[in-house]
Amino acid sequence: MLDLEGIYKNESVEDVLLHFAPRTPYPSIDRMYVNYKFEIVANGHLLETYQRVIREGKLLENGKPLPEKDPNWKEPKFVTNNKYGIE
């Protein structure tokens, strides 16, 4: 079973975005941070990080609800290590 709470509480905001943004709309990611680590949303860190990964070419906004993986995208280590039940 996927441990979403563990991911949102323990992993960097950038890594969470790199994994979830191509498959989950931003408002859903925002809502998960509100549930598990509110201060990330309250201080603007989530939006700042999202904008930065777009600028750095890790995610590509395409006019659709979900961004695409850009050439500089790398799978986060928590995913490659199969942490939190991710397969």
Rank of each mutant, 00 (worst) to 15 (best):
N82Q: 12
F20C: 10
F20Q: 10
I40C: 01
N43S: 15
P25G: 06
M1V: 14
P71Y: 13
Y33M: 08
K64H: 13
R52C: 00
E11N: 11
V41Y: 07
K69V: 01
L46P: 06
S28K: 15
V41W: 01
G44T: 10
T24A: 10
N82K: 12
D15K: 07
N82H: 14
L2E: 12
Q51N: 11
F20E: 08
P71D: 04
H45N: 14
E87N: 08
L59V: 00
K74G: 04
E87H: 10
A21K: 02
P67R: 06
G57P: 00
V34N: 07
M32S: 15
Q51R: 15
P76S: 07
N43E: 11
V34Y: 11
R31T: 14
R52G: 06
I29S: 04
I86G: 04
F20V: 03
H19S: 12
I40G: 03
M1K: 15
I7V: 13
P71R: 08
N82W: 00
V53S: 00
E14Y: 12
A21T: 02
H45V: 11
L66W: 09
M1I: 08
N81Y: 02
V16G: 05
T49C: 03
E87S: 12
D30C: 10
L59F: 13
K37F: 06
N72R: 05
P27F: 10
E14M: 07
Y84W: 01
Y50K: 02
G6I: 00
L18Y: 05
E75I: 06
K9E: 13
L59R: 02
N43Q: 09
Y84T: 07
V34D: 11
N10A: 13
S28R: 15
A42G: 02
G57H: 00
G57A: 00
E56H: 09
R31D: 12
G57I: 02
R23Y: 01
V41F: 02
R31Y: 13
K64P: 07
G44P: 05
E87W: 01
P22W: 00
S12L: 02
E48T: 13
E14Q: 14
R52P: 07
G6L: 11
S12Q: 12
N62R: 10
E75Y: 00
K77R: 04
P65R: 14
N62H: 11
D3A: 12
A21H: 01
P25D: 09
D15L: 07
E48I: 10
N62S: 13
P71K: 08
E61C: 04
H45P: 05
L60F: 09
H45G: 09
M32R: 15
L4K: 14
N81D: 13
L2K: 07
K74C: 03
V79G: 05
K83T: 09
L46Q: 04
Y36F: 15
Y26P: 09
S12M: 01
P71A: 06
E11L: 04
E56F: 11
N35E: 14
R52E: 08
F38R: 14
W73E: 04
D30Y: 14
L18N: 06
L2Y: 11
K74D: 00
F20R: 03
E61P: 06
D15F: 09
Q51Y: 08
F78G: 06
K58N: 01
R23E: 07
W73G: 00
K83M: 07
T24Y: 03
K58C: 03
L66F: 11
Y8H: 04
D30M: 12
D15C: 08
P71E: 06
P76V: 03
K64F: 15
L66Y: 05
